[in-house]
Every structure is written in structure tokens, then in C-alpha cells.
């Protein structure tokens, strides 16, 4: 078996007395989708934030390609090929759709300490931004202000920005949240396409999407890993049935 691209070891995050993430050890392999499910407050978003560097872990290790990256800042982790999308849409609302992607793609220039040539003259960056917009199905919408997009389209833009940074590891925090069924289907198809070249963490409430995409499935409850394994094994697990799958999620 190949080595995990991303691996956590007994990862913990405490907020005061609350252990939002508690001794979580997970592995993420290239060409695989590792879905994390669990009720609200289970620590899924916190886990994503720990992996992306938005939050610092209280203890434990995060290995990217075998090197410990726990404690690195978010920008360094991003530069090492980890891209993240947010559950709450986190885009540049006053910018155009295209500029959102362009600024994301520009981050892959060796440095943006460039003061003279216009940003729009960097053809490589422009192409990359176009490509990302095409991937999520927003081509042709580039000149609209991001603020005028519908909620679902903003979600698509969110993913496009992440893709424009050319990550190897994708951390997707509820990419389908608030999307219509048509957009959802398109997004699932896109994620399916991205699978062969990426290691993916997928936090998602949409069980159809999760079972369509996931190669591995982890169920979190109260910051802990309740169960981790293949989707079939999880579906059969009595503990999971009781804690999560059996009960309809009140949305």
C-alpha cells in the first residue's frame, strides 16, 4: 500500500475545556476521497481548520508527505499543496468572479512582490483562473461581481478558487451545502473527475453524495472518531446506525 499523503496522529484541539477534536488519527491517500460525517458540532470543521492551518492544534501531529506540518501557518500549508474550501462561503465579494480566481491563481507565482507589470499581463495566471472557472461551470460569468452570484454559484466559485491554487490535497468543507440538486449533481461529477489526481477530505451532510464519492468514511461524534472504514462497513456498523445514520439529521 502506498504511503498516505496526509496523515494525522492523535490530533487534539481544545477550546477552553471543550475538546472539539479529540485524539483523531486519520489517513488521506492520493486518488481517494475520505469523507468525514457526523452530527453538527462533531468537530468536522475544526478538523478541516487544523489541517489547513487556520487553527493550531493543541497536541498531536499532522504529516504531509511524511513531514510534520502542525504549527505551520495557513499560507505555508497552502504553498505545500493543500487547498481548502469553506463551509461558510469565503470569497472576495466586491471582486469580480474572475478576479476571485485570478488572485487565487496568482498565489502560485514564485512571489507577488511584483510592482510594475500589470497583474493582467501574467498570461499563465489568467489561463489558470479561466481553467478553474470552466471546471466548476462558471465560465462566461467572470465579469460579474461575486456578490451578485446566487448562493449555489458562490459555492462553485469557492471551489474554483481552491482549484486555481493547484492543490494536491483538497479539504472540502460541505461543498454541497445550500446547492440546488442540479448544481449538486454537477459538483459531485466534478469531484469525481478530480479524484484521480487529488487526496480529498470531504466533509458533507449529503449522504447520497458521500456514498457516491467516498472510498473511506469516518464518522465523528463529539470530537472523536466513532468509526472509520469503507463505506460498506460504516453502513453496517451498529454504533454508527445508532449515533448518526439511523436518525434523520434535523437541518
Amino acid at each position: 500500500m502506498t504511503e498516505a499523503v496526509l496523515r494525522t496522529e492523535r490530533l487534539c484541539k481544545h477550546f477552553g475545556g471543550l475538546a472539539a477534536v479529540n485524539e483523531v488519527s486519520l489517513e488521506f491517500f492520493s486518488d481517494q476521497v475520505h469523507a468525514v460525517i457526523g452530527p453538527n458540532g462533531a468537530g468536522k470543521t475544526t478538523l478541516t481548520s487544523l489541517l489547513s492551518g487556520d487553527l493550531r492544534c493543541s497536541s498531536g501531529c499532522i504529516y504531509l508527505d511524511g513531514k510534520d506540518i502542525a504549527g505551520l501557518s495557513a499560507d505555508r500549508i497552502s504553498q505545500r499543496g493543500v487547498g481548502r474550501s469553506y463551509q461558510k462561503t469565503n470569497i472576495f465579494l466586491p471582486f469580480t468572479v474572475f478576479e476571485n480566481c485570478r488572485i487565487a491563481a496568482q498565489s502560485r507565482l514564485p512571489s507577488s512582490m511584483r510592482f510594475i507589470r500589470p497583474a493582467l499581463a501574467y498570461r499563465e495566471v489568467m489561463r489558470e483562473a479561466e481553467r478553474a472557472l470552466e471546471q466548476v461551470g462558471l465560465a462566461g460569468r467572470g465579469q460579474e461581481p461575486a456578490a451578485t452570484l446566487s448562493h449555489g454559484e458562490q459555492r462553485q466559485l469557492e471551489i474554483a478558487m481552491t482549484l486555481a491554487t493547484r492543490p494536491r490535497v483538497l479539504l472540502l468543507d460541505e461543498p454541497l451545502a445550500g446547492m440546488g440538486s442540479e448544481d449538486s449533481a454537477r459538483m459531485v461529477e466534478l469531484l469525481q473527475q478530480l479524484k484521480p489526481s487529488h487526496a480529498m477530505l470531504l466533509v458533507e451532510h449529503d449522504m447520497d453524495a458521500v456514498f457516491a464519492l467516498a472510498d473511506r468514511l469516518t464518522v465523528m461524534v463529539d470530537g472523536r472518531v466513532l468509526e472509520s472504514g469503507t463505506p460498506e462497513a460504516i453502513r453496517a456498523s451498529a454504533a454508527v446506525q445508532e449515533a448518526y445514520l439511523g436518525v434523520e439529521e434535523p437541518q
Binding site: 489547513s52 497552502s78 510592482f115 491554487t165
Partner: peptide
Amino acid sequence: MLLASPFGRVIVGIRVNEQRMRTLGYR
């Protein structure tokens, strides 16, 4: 000229959403 350059775009991005600029890989 500065504001139209990659540097200029970065500083405006920082004003709009600094945290997102960081996760995009900008120091």
C-alpha cells in the same frame, strides 16, 4: 501602476478578506 500590479491586487485582497488571502497561500 502599483495598484494594477500583482502586489497591488494582493493588498486589496488583504483589505477585503485577509484570512482568505492566507489560505490562498499569501504571507
